[in-house]
Design a protein around this nucleic acid. Structure first.
Lengths: 247, 247
DNA sequence: CGACCCATTGAATATAGTCAACCCGGGTGG
DNA sequence: CCACCCGGGTTGACTATATTCAATGGGTCG
């Protein structure tokens, strides 16, 4: 059962599709098993065949793949409300790892329960599908970013994306967001060296496009930042009512 | 109705899941409208809401996104048997473009027909889902390639992937495959300049890892090439019986 | 034949990576 | 309480990888 936090999943689902009251209640009644995962700890690993999906309730998680030559590519940062391994419902064997970035409270939801829910509420099934497809869309945009954009734009784009995603689940305050990620981790997400990430951060700060604090980032000049990043949130497929005008 | 070529879709489907005879026949009876698309022509564009899915029957297609600064990122090359915009079934508005790479024979399949088929054969529905999820998996691997691998490995990885995918639908002959893609196009797929792609091709040729002809590529030394590329086909999620030993 | 696109080459340049330090703050153990 | 350690952020100098620019040759197609 998801109380309180349950609204977060509902919030995430309604950010991509409209739900009826009955559907919202059914989602909140979903049985979840809470688990507190320490920072920098794997939640599920490549090659495993999970029987549960992981719902992020509190904290940040991330998915990554390792290369033989010792590299690590961070595929996606996950925020509360996300279900990072939703795909395991229909693609049994995991092709990447999921880990906690910060100490993270997860809710494990049994595949069976989701299937049951989907049977009762076919429209919910399609919302879950939609989440999977949006994840794929985000990955495509990531490909564009890594393939076509220079370092500074990559960083800017990442920050824009995180801000919009966090805002869509109500986790921003004005221009500020909590983003507890280190520069080495950012480097693995952006396909850059951490030294270079450091320099790009300084450049963004120098241009007045970001202000950073301990674990927080402020975007005081959204339009210039979004412009530099060539950011357009269409690929996040948010419903219009969850896309407030840029602050 | 798909005759002849229809086997290609069946072939693709069985490459990722087992099908019953009834299911195979139902797939072959799917009504498709054939269309011949000239090379370098858009099939569906970003922002559109297609009512049909595109099945590649003959030739090669590709999906791409343009950036404001004039860049083009090719997301994926599609081979016969692929359904590049399958996602439009549940994510109505397209977030990227689909075009023909060569003159391409496509089969348009109405969304309604696929939905009907999925209703009659629920297991087929999950196979179509699986295709979507595999596409997402491929995109993740693309992120790893662009983020972590140097130019030479990127090219090698791309060639390995194309070879395995073509082989899984029976479109290779020994170590050879037809791959009608120009170096500028390769550059847009790999996030490199075409000049550099040219140099990397020469380097692969010099090492004896590839031999190129007009529109064809031979991989005479699979193990060294796969090693250089750090290629592991797990992310393609092929069923074991469709993964012949590397030649 | 001429236009155009692709493949190829060389030289100059730019972007990003590597190496090697240093500082700082938080946490640990004495 | 303090010394120490460790990891993250920062800096400078050097290197490497990849891009840009510019030019050439070969095919194909009107």
């Amino acid at each position: 059962m998801i109380e309180g936090d349950g609204h977060l999943l509902v919030r995430r689902l309604t950010s991509v599709a409209a739900l009826s009251e009955a559907e919202k209640e059914a989602v909140c009644r979903l049985p979840v098993e809470r688990r507190l995962v320490p920072a920098r700890t794997d939640i599920v690993k490549e090659g495993e065949r999970p029987t549960h999906c992981c719902l992020v309730l509190k904290g940040f998680a991330f998915r990554y793949k390792l290369t033989r030559s010792g590299g690590r590519q961070i595929l996606q940062i996950h925020v509360p409300g996300d279900m990072p391994d939703l795909q395991s419902l229909d693609l049994p064997v995991l092709d990447h790892n999921l880990a906690a970035l910060t100490p993270t409270l997860t809710g494990e939801v049994a595949h069976d329960h989701i299937h049951e829910l989907s049977r009762q509420f076919p429209r919910l099934a399609s919302v879950f599908w939609r989440l999977n497809l949006i994840d794929a869309s985000v990955m495509r945009e990531r490909v564009v970013t890594l393939g076509q954009r220079p370092a500074l734009s990559r960083l800017a784009h990442f920050l824009c994306e995180m801000f919009v995603r966090l805002r869509s689940v109500g986790l921003t305050e004005g221009h500020a967001m909590r983003l507890p990620i280190t520069q080495p981790e950012l480097a693995d997400a952006l396909g850059l060296s951490y030294v270079h990430v450091n320099r790009m951060m300084q450049e963004l700060r120098g241009k007045g496009l970001i202000e950073t604090g301990r674990d927080t980032v402020m975007l005081p000049n959204w339009s210039d930042l979004a412009n530099l990043a060539e950011f357009d949130d269409a690929y996040l497929h948010l419903t219009p009512w969850e896309r407030p005008e840029p602050v």
